[in-house]
């Protein structure tokens, strides 16, 4: 399996960061950075990472089930993550999430038929002072309202 030169360079640096013989430390960062490039943790990726880090595939399977950001199924191009934890809930996070469901016509951890959007109700994303907050992939959006969400989704649609 081949990756982009940037990702290869990152992998090379990553493995250096852990003590000799303990390169398994690079596992979770490698999976996440690779997933960002190829869309999901595919069986090929799993085998490739196992080979490079000298770990058993089952060790990767264990980790995959644990971390919520890792996924075997590709998400939408724009992964919308709405926080409904306490600070966001107090300031309208649940309404925002319900609005996102309606607007996109999908529910939690689903994706639209065209593969453009997926939706996830997430726990606190560390943006509580600027609640309600949400993420589109890795981009934060603060002090959201249903109206702001509408125009955000419309502009993402146009980007296609």
């Amino acid at each position: 399996m081949t990756f982009s030169p940037e990702l290869e360079a990152r992998f090379a640096r990553l493995i250096e960061n852990y003590p000799p013989g303990r390169q398994k430390g690079a596992l979770i960062p490698m999976l996440l950075y690779a997933q960002d490039e190829i869309g999901s943790v595919t069986p090929e990726l799993l085998a490739e990472v196992a080979k490079r880090l000298h770990v058993k595939q089952v060790e990767i399977e264990e980790v995959l089930g644990y971390y919520t950001m890792l996924t075997r199924e590709p998400r939408g191009k724009h992964h919308i993550q709405v926080c409904t934890n306490v600070s966001c809930m107090l300031t309208g996070g649940e309404e925002l999430y319900a609005h996102a469901c309606k607007k996109l016509g999908i529910g939690n951890r689903q994706k639209t038929a065209d593969g453009q959007f997926s939706l996830e109700e997430v726990e606190c994303i560390g943006a509580c002072s600027w609640a309600p907050a949400m993420l589109v992939n890795y981009d934060f959006h603060f002090n959201m309202t249903p109206e702001k969400l509408d125009s955000l989704i419309d502009s993402l649609r146009k980007m296609q």
Partner: peptide, 27 residues
């Protein structure tokens, strides 16, 4: 010094779970 990314887990803020995660395991 280097950064190490987590991948979505509150429990990985607990220091010993964080260290497990740093070693490439479940937190």
């Amino acid at each position: 010094l280097s950064t190490h990314t987590g991948a979505g887990s509150y429990e990985c803020g607990e220091e010993s779970a964080l260290l497990e995660s740093l070693e490439g395991k479940r937190g």
